[in-house]
Design a protein around this nucleic acid. Structure first.
Lengths: 237, 237
DNA sequence: GTCTATAAATAGATAGAC
DNA sequence: GTCTATCTATTTATAGAC
C-alpha cells in the first residue's frame, strides 16, 4: 500500500512465472524509490542528486534512468504515491456511514496517519507548496482536487443534517491542513530549537495536536467560533 | 525597514562623506538582495543559481561575492531580515498596553503584514521548515526563539488576567502559524489549482483568513474549544 | 566597485559492455 | 537488469584587469 506507486511497472511489463535464477527488479525499484524519497525530502527536487540517491540505495545512477526514465519522473511518482494514498483514505471515510462529525475527525486522522507512514511526506509537501505545484502531474493534481472536494462533501453533508453551519470549505481546509502540516514538518526543526535552548519547542505530541485540530475544526463547523469582540463579520458561503 | 539587513555593510565599512563622482554601493547591494530573495523563494537555497540572481539584478555574479561573500551568507542575510522584522514587530505589540486579547490579535496581524510585505517570505519559510533550519545562523535562531517566547508571554499575561485558560503555547503557536503560513505560501498553488478546475481553491481573501485565525485562536485561549463528543481530554500545561 | 575570464567540482543523462 | 565510463552543461567561487 505504502509503495503502491513504486510497484507499478512503467516499462517492461512482465507478469507470470519467471524462467530460472531470476533477478529481483521490484526490490531494486523499491530501494531506489525509498532512497529518493529521503533525498528529495532532505534537499528538495532541485537540490537532490541522482548520484546520492543511487549511492544511498547501494546501486548506481544508471538504474534510476532504467527504472524511472528521469529524475523528474521519479519525483512525480513519489508525489503521486503520497497524495493518492491520502485521497484513497479520505474517500473511504467519506463513503462510510459515520456521522458528518466523525467523518471530519477521521479526515484529520487520515492525513496524520499517512503523513506518519511516510517521513518524507511532510517536508516534500512543504516544498511543493513553495514550488507552486510545479512538479505535479495531471494525476497528482486530480488527487489534490479530490481531497479538497472530499472535505467539502463532508461539510455539505453536515450542513444538510443540521449539525454544521455553512463555512467556506477552503478556509476550513487551510485551518486544518496548516497546523497538521506544520506540526509534522517542523518536528526536526523544533528538536533543533529545543536543543538550542527554546523551551517547549519539542514538547508537542502527535495525539495532542491531532485531537486539538479535530476539536477546533468541529468548533468552527458548529459555529462556535468566538467571533466575539470587534469585527464579528457574518460568514459568507 | 524592510531592507534593514541589506543596508548593513559586512565588509568595507566606510562612513562619512565621499571624495568625488562616488558610486552607489547600497543600491547594488539592494538590487542583489531583492533578486536573491525572489530566486531563493522560487527555487530554494540548493536550487537557486547565483548566475540567475546576478542576471536578474542586471549585474554579474562577482558582485555577489564582493558584497556578500558567498551564496550561503546572502541567503542567511535574507533569512535574518525576515525573522528579525517579525520579531521586532511582535515584541513591540507585547510591550504595548493593549489587552492580552488584542495582543494576540495583533500577533497574528503582525505576521500576516510582514509576510505580505515580502512575497519571498512565505515560500522561503516553508522551505526552511523542510530544511530543518539548516541555514539559520545563531542570530536567526535567536529571533525565532524570541517570536515563540513573545507569544508565550502574551498567553501567560492573559491567564494572569483571568481571560485565558492555560494552554500549551507551542500548540497555540502551531495552530496559528500553520494556517497563516499555508494560506500565504499556497496562494500561487491555489491559483493554479483554480485554473485547473478546482472550484473555490482561489476564493480565500487575506482579511477573511486573518480574522478567522484570530477568532479561532482566541476561542482556544478562552477555553471555548468544542472538546465535545469523545476524547475530551483535559488540557495539560 | 565593477567587470571578464576561468578554474574546479558536480549536475543530469547516455552509451555500451556484460 | 546491472554495471562502468563518459559526455555535456551548469554549478559555486576566484583571479586579475580596469
Amino acid at each position: 500500500m505504502m509503495m503502491a506507486a513504486a510497484t507499478s511497472r512503467t516499462r517492461t511489463q512482465r507478469r507470470g512465472p519467471r524462467r530460472s535464477p531470476a533477478p529481483a527488479p521490484d526490490s531494486t525499484r523499491q530501494a531506489l524509490f525509498a532512497a529518493a524519497a529521503r533525498e528529495f525530502a532532505r534537499h528538495g527536487f532541485a537540490g537532490a542528486s541522482v548520484d546520492r540517491i543511487a549511492a544511498a540505495a547501494r546501486l548506481n545512477k544508471a538504474m534510476i534512468y532504467y527504472h524511472f526514465g528521469s529524475k523528474g519522473r521519479l519525483y512525480a511518482e513519489i508525489l503521486h504515491d503520497m497524495f493518492s494514498a491520502v485521497g484513497a483514505r479520505v474517500r473511504a471515510v467519506a463513503d462510510s456511514n459515520a456521522s458528518a462529525e466523525d467523518k471530519v475527525r477521521q479526515f484529520v486522522e487520515a492525513i496524520a496517519a499517512e503523513a506518519e507512514a511516510r517521513p518524507h511526506f511532510p517536508p516534500i509537501w512543504c516544498r511543493e507548496v513553495a514550488d507552486e505545484g510545479r512538479h505535479f502531474g495531471q494525476d497528482t493534481g486530480r488527487e489534490v482536487a479530490s481531497i479538497v472536494g472530499t472535505l467539502k462533501r463532508m461539510i455539505d453533508e453536515g450542513v444538510r443534517a443540521g449539525v454544521f453551519v455553512p463555512a467556506p470549505h477552503m478556509l476550513v481546509h487551510v485551518g486544518l491542513i496548516g497546523p497538521l502540516l506544520l506540526f509534522f514538518a517542523s518536528t526536526p526543526l523544533r528538536a533543533r530549537l529545543s536543543r538550542a535552548g527554546v523551551r517547549g519547542a519539542a514538547e508537542l505530541n502527535r495525539d495532542q495536536v491531532v485531537g486539538h485540530i479535530q476539536n477546533v475544526t468541529l468548533g468552527v463547523l458548529r459555529g462556535m467560533t468566538a467571533g466575539a469582540g470587534r469585527k464579528a463579520k457574518s460568514r459568507s458561503v
